[in-house]
Design a protein around this nucleic acid. Structure first.
Lengths: 338, 338
DNA sequence: TTTGGCACTCGCGACTGCTGAGTGCCAGGA
DNA sequence: TCCTGGCACTCAGCAGTCGCGAGTGCCAAA
């Protein structure tokens, strides 16, 4: 069992190590923190903490550094979420308010987050799985060429070019557009397939091929776009990692380039509340010496996507968590407004 | 004046240095290349080349490495563009052919380029300055809420939400849509403003405010979207840079995060033909130890945007140039097809 | 349970000497 | 005039040595 003071010692170790990036010894600890006990006592506590696996020595005769398990305990029981200062909040709002479209919102968010946390930021585009259709538009560009435009309630627009098996007249197209919209507008993506299943049958024989093609493309687009996209930023902050560069930074950069890996990473985060994955808790090997702080965000109460940061395990957890949470809230607001 | 042999020596130095990443000495040179002269002679040539500023010694008693000026000479007079192998070409085509939309084309291109050159790839989205309007769509989402969708001939789609000063009826909106399209479809962005200048006047008094707002938003979108976007990839390749990491890689990552810097970088490249900027030839300080190989690409004969790679000055120029050129060509083809 | 004292460990930086790759110069030969 | 072999010189990098000091673990006393 860990006494109150031992937890206090662990907290002090984490704080100091995060600040100095150097192993912290018993003497330094008693000097910088008012623990009210002597270095010798702290040494005993440290030995106990090491015994339990919360801290470790890089080598004999060096100070201690927290282990992943130590950080875990710190995050779970010792650290709060540090709220941002008022000027910071204002800065966030100002910065995000100027966004003109979804790309811009996501772009600004990622830069903002990278700047606030001084780490690598990852922002997922609002997911389409839970999105609804705002509008489907069909444009005739040539006799047998139709452009399909899909607009979602999160402001995302996707378009596809369709080569039709046969030319289709403007009236038929307008008819299709109207019927399509009356059926799917406001509906969730997942519901669309069954809603349009029998649509082709109600058209004249000559147009059926084209209608089917259009519907097929629509469904295809829905599926494809459910695969999520994301944006990352602040990779330059990786250089602040440590001094043992190439080995540390390389796998991280590689992981960050793999959208699949990142999506999985964010996907593993809880839908609500903040998720912190520390070091080896991350499934991906390249991220074994990093921590990921992620949180869902959304325009309403439901999270439509996630955002977060990737940084060294030795990070300022309270501050980072505060920044991530604050940014997620503001983005949610912005999204709700548009 | 540089004799034929001295140029040959320079070429050998560049090739060896690019291969080994280590300063190359006179003896090693004569062993690896059939220069037909003794090391002593090569030493004299090296002294001359150093005198002229084409090569330099990192320190006394070390071999020589090419200077920026040396690379410049190499690129201008000694190196050709190495065409890709047939399997490579086939791989490019296969990889790019699967793209479904513009984002996908650009995304695949950037990954492809990064993989082929093993360097950082930068791809600019097709510029809208020279683009034409394919279609403008107006959708009524609520009585006083209109969505504007702009579709370009390069397949790009932009949308804006518009809050109208007054509600507008479906018929008026359809009217506006029709007139707008008849005027601007097929026209260049730059011509649009004067084409729609008097459009508001032909509408009923009650709708004029809304029409003006819509037109203003359209023009605004055109201007905003002329600001180019781009995508980068392969940053993990930066870790292959050298062993003196943080100092080298940091400013590069920072520069790469600044879209403005990159756009300027590509903007400085010639419209046609390939541009190679070596080391200090790059205006941006952070890129002083990198070279940029860029080329324009487009669906027709005109270049609509640029793409390229950023790598250490010590790069395989012929190979890189070959890959960049080949990729640009294929992307041009893909764009022309869609 | 805490504390001061003490012996012990060991990473790290400073210093040294050696080695070998590479150079510049020179004098003799084509 | 240009090339070449020889020779003395330079110096980065590596390995080995050494002392310092931060930090530890243990123990006996409070």
């Amino acid at each position: 069992m860990l006494s109150e003071r031992r937890l206090e010692v662990l907290r002090a170790i984490v704080q100091d190590y995060v600040g100095t990036e150097e192993p912290v010894g018993s003497k330094a600890l008693t000097e910088r923190h008012r623990l009210g006990v002597s270095p010798a006592t702290v040494r005993n506590d440290m030995a106990a903490l090491e015994e339990e696996g919360f801290i470790a020595q890089p080598h004999t005769s060096a100070g201690r550094i927290p282990t992943d398990k130590g950080y875990r305990l710190f995050v779970d029981r010792l650290a709060g979420v540090k709220p941002l200062s008022t000027p910071e909040r204002r800065a966030i709002q100002n910065f995000l308010d100027g966004a003109v479209d979804l790309d811009d919102v996501v772009g600004r968010t990622v830069r903002l987050l990278a700047q606030l946390t001084r780490q690598v930021a990852v922002v997922q585009y609002p997911s389409l799985t839970r999105s609804t259709v705002r509008h489907v538009e069909l444009l005739s560009l040539a006799p047998a060429r139709v452009m399909l435009v899909l607009i979602t309630d999160t402001g995302r627009v996707e378009q596809r070019m369709i080569d039709c098996p046969a030319p289709i007249g403007e009236t038929s197209l307008a008819d299709l557009r109207a019927r399509l919209n009356s059926r799917v507008v406001g509906r969730r993506f997942t519901d669309v397939p069954q809603l349009v299943a029998d649509l082709a049958e109600s058209f004249e024989q000559e147009d059926r091929g084209t209608v089917s093609t259009v519907l097929a493309t629509l469904l295809e687009t829905l599926v494809e776009e459910t695969e999520e996209r994301l944006m990352i930023g602040g990779t330059a902050n990786l250089t602040r990692f440590g001094h043992d560069f190439p080995l540390t930074i390389r796998p991280v950069l590689e992981a960050l380039e793999e959208q699949v890996v990142l999506l999985k990473l964010l996907g593993e985060a809880k839908d609500s509340g903040m998720t912190v994955r520390i070091g080896h808790e991350n499934a991906h090997e390249g991220l074994n010496s990093t921590s990921v702080v992620a949180v869902g965000y959304g325009s309403g109460d439901e999270a439509v996507a996630k955002l977060g940061v990737v940084g060294p395990t030795r990070m300022d957890y309270p501050g980072t968590m505060g920044a991530v949470r604050a940014v997620a809230r503001y983005v949610g607001q912005i999204l709700a407004e548009s």
